[in-house]
C-alpha cells in the first residue's frame, strides 16, 4: 500500500521526527525568524517550497547523474550546488516577474540558500529512499512527500513558536534568559510535548 506509506512518511516528518524539534535541522531560521507570526509564516512557506523542489531536483541529480556514472561520493558537492543555484534562480525569477511576491518572500529565499533543513532533507532522502527503493518513480514520490511534509512540520513549529514569542514579549522573563535562551527553553518544552507522538503505529 503506497498511500499508507506516504501517510506514514507525512506523520513521521511532521510529528515524530520533526525537523526542528527532533532532528535539529533549520534551527537558525527557527530562532531568527520566529519573533513575529507573519514573517514566520512566509518563511515557512518559502522553506516548504524550496524543500519540495530540492527533493525533486536532487532526486533527478542522483538517479540520472550520480548513479549512472558511479560518482555517488560527489553527493555532498553536487547537492549543495544544485540547491544553491536553484534558489538563486527562483529568487531572480520572482524578482523579475512579481515584485510584490519578491517583497514578501525574497529575503527569506536568500536566507535559506544554505539552510541545513533544505540540504538535510536532500541528504536524508538519498539515505532513506534513493538507495533502497528499486523503482525510481516510487523513490521520487517518497522524496517529494518527505520534502513537502518536512516543510509543513517546519512551518507548524515555527508558527507555534512565533505565537509564543509574541506573548513572551509581555512576560517578565529573567534578564539573562531573555531572547535566545528562553526561545530554547520553549523549544525544549515543545519538544517534550512532541515526544507524546513517539512510537506511532498505523
Amino acid at each position: 500500500m503506497e498511500l499508507n506509506q506516504l501517510f506514514m512518511i507525512a506523520i513521521s516528518v511532521i510529528f515524530i521526527n520533526n525537523f526542528i524539534l527532533s532532528r535539529f535541522l533549520g534551527l537558525c531560521p527557527f530562532i531568527g525568524v520566529s519573533k513575529k507570526t507573519e514573517p514566520a509564516f512566509y518563511m515557512g512557506l518559502a522553506v516548504t517550497f524550496v524543500m519540495t523542489a530540492s527533493s525533486v531536483i536532487t532526486w533527478a541529480v542522483y538517479i540520472y547523474l550520480l548513479e549512472p556514472f558511479h560518482i555517488e561520493y560527489l553527493r555532498t558537492l553536487s547537492f549543495i550546488l544544485v540547491i544553491a543555484s536553484f534558489v538563486q534562480l527562483v529568487e531572480m525569477f520572482i524578482q523579475k516577474t512579481s515584485p510584490a511576491l519578491y517583497r514578501a518572500f525574497g529575503i527569506y529565499l536568500a536566507l535559506i540558500t544554505t539552510n541545513c533543513a533544505v540540504f538535510g532533507v536532500a541528504v536524508l532522502n538519498s539515505e532513506m529512499y534513493l538507495k533502497t527503493t528499486g523503482n525510481p518513480l516510487k523513490g521520487l514520490l517518497f522524496c517529494a512527500t518527505q520534502g513537502f511534509f518536512a516543510g509543513v512540520g517546519f512551518t507548524l513549529v515555527l508558527l507555534f513558536m512565533s505565537g509564543i514569542r509574541e506573548r513572551l514579549e509581555l512576560c517578565d522573563v529573567p534578564g539573562p534568559m531573555k531572547n535566545m535562551p528562553i526561545a530554547f527553553i520553549v523549544a525544549f518544552l515543545m519538544s517534550m510535548a512532541f515526544m507524546g507522538f513517539s512510537g506511532f503505529r498505523f
Binding site: 509564543i164 513517539s198 503505529r201
Partner: peptide, 25 residues
Amino acid sequence: LKGSYPEGVSYAILFMNAVVPLIDR
C-alpha cells in the same frame, strides 16, 4: 489508540498549550 504511550491526556494538553497564543490571535 496509536502511540506507544497508553495515556495521552498530559501530552495533548501540553501540545495545545503551545498553540494557545495562535488560537487567541
